[in-house]
Design a protein around this nucleic acid. Structure first.
Length: 405
RNA sequence: GGAGGGGUGCCGGAGUGGUUAAUCGGAGCAGACUGUAAAUCUGCCGCUCGGAAGGGCUACGCAGGUUCGAACCCUGCCCUCUCCA
């Protein structure tokens, strides 16, 4: 099987937009030109089954490689999941049950294949090779690297210098990931720039074991909706691939103006020429950034859902956020309105407030309104079918639970 | 094995016997404003009772102790870091 023929210009484009660094670039270019189908490795940790836009940068690039004929190998990190990627201050995690790993992997793949072509993807589980590992194998693997080498990784050295604990299992993480490359004979491994160390260990181990070292393609880290930190679930500044169109659109609208172009470039397919136009418009203040953000939101929702959802999501945003109106669809909540009505109780029980104290706070801050009028006291008469609004965008339609009986 | 640090609310990090539900920063929430769920400003930010004023309960690694009173002092334990071996 051969890949499609394509020019230097195509290769340039492929390795430029949304790519941070390629090691070794000349070799990858040669490999791409050779016409050989390359095995593109991408791994994931099934303890975090949710994909967000940050991951999408790399997945989109994988897709581009697929579209010209290359093969993706998706690795389910059912062993590394138990260690936890040492980038944070994470510690060894409890073993996930086999069942749990399975359901997480399923969830992950549903999201993964929204972007990557399922037909051109081979799914492999780490346990296929690590399941048979014994202590001798572990010793053989670990003896190939030194502590000094491992400590060269930025995350490790930072923690080490800050007198924070690092377990030996965490040191194992890069080695396991590297061995994956050997096991599947990877030609190229994809990852964020924060993965550089692990990716390079893969190259080393492959060389040691007589394989051709994989090429490493690093994609930039996407900044989160806060505009400051990298997008991550634990920081809460993420936009999930599986979220509703309304949520995705709204979250896109909440990004700071300064990172609009960054998002366009990394996670949409809007052409380079058009992006240049946008940049000029922004520079000259010739466009309201909000309009560009709306376009961005439409692009992203279309990619993750479809064009129709994008339109609905935008309408929803205009209606609810900009005009402060009530959305078309409101979740119905059942509550017994008869007995001595207690609004705090109601808000808490339908999850519009965390606790009765929280509900009290919201009421006193004027955040709660019923059918458009702001509530000032706790006890009041409610009609079945009334709409409660809390804050800017939390709504519930209250149905008297007695009626349906 | 020895010596010395450290464990505080979602996170970072003050506080070393009472006025501490615990300074401050970040996150989060709300209101105002706006060009948006941007930015900015203001307020809130353990649970619970109360319309409010105010009250009760729980909380500073764990378990005890001293004291009228402890995040703060003492004892033991657990976790963790550094240095020496």
């Amino acid at each position: 099987m051969e890949t499609n023929k394509f020019s230097n210009q195509d290769i340039n484009r492929l390795l430029k937009r949304g790519v941070c660094e390629v090691i070794v670039k000349e070799e990858l270019v040669t490999a791409l030109k050779s016409g050989k189908v390359l095995r593109l490795k991408e791994g994931f940790d099934p303890s975090f089954p949710d994909i967000h836009l940050g991951h999408m940068v790399g997945l989109k690039k994988l897709r581009e490689f697929q579209d010209i004929g290359h093969q993706v190998v998706l690795i389910v990190g059912d062993w590394t999941a138990q260690i936890g990627d040492p980038s944070g201050a994470s510690v060894t995690r409890p073993m996930l049950s086999a069942e749990h790993v399975k359901t997480n992997a399923k969830t992950y793949m549903e999201q993964f294949f929204k972007i990557v072509d399922k037909e051109k993807t081979e799914v492999r589980w780490q346990s296929e090779w690590f399941g048979n590992f014994n202590l001798a194998d572990v010793i053989k693997l670990t003896s190939k690297f030194t502590i000094a080498q491992i400590l060269a990784r930025d995350d490790f050295s930072k923690r080490y210098n800050a007198n924070q604990p690092i377990t030996i299992t965490e040191f194992l993480y890069p080695l396991l990931q590297a061995y994956d490359s050997v096991a599947i004979k990877a030609d190229v491994e994809f990852g964020g720039t924060d993965q550089k160390f692990n990716l390079l260990v893969g190259r080393e181990l492959q060389t040691m074991l007589g394989q051709r070292p994989q090429q490493v393609l690093m994609v930039p880290l996407l900044v989160g909706t806060d505009g400051v930190h990298k997008m991550s679930k634990s920081l809460g500044n993420y936009i999930g691939v599986a979220e509703s169109p309304e949520n995705i659109f709204g979250k896109v609208m909440s990004i700071p103006d300064g990172i609009i172009m960054n998002y366009f470039e990394l996670i949409t397919c809007v052409s380079d020429q058009e992006l240049d136009e946008f940049r000029q418009l922004l520079d000259k203040n010739a466009v309201n950034p909000m309009e560009l953000k709306k376009r961005l939101g439409r692009e992203i929702v279309t990619k993750l859902h479809d064009a129709k959802s994008a339109i609905t999501a935008e309408e929803h945003f205009a209606k609810v956020v900009q005009n402060k109106e009530i959305p078309n669809e409101i979740e119905e909540c059942f509550f017994n309105l008869d007995s001595s009505m207690d609004l705090k109780e109601l808000l808490t029980s339908i999850n519009l407030a965390k606790s009765r104290s929280d509900a009290g706070r919201l009421i006193s801050q004027g955040a709660v309104s019923i059918d458009g009028s702001v509530v000032v006291c706790n006890s009041m008469k409610l009609e079945s079918g009334c709409v409660i609004k809390v804050g800017k965008r939390r709504f519930a339609k209250i149905i008297n639970s007695d009626i349906i009986k």
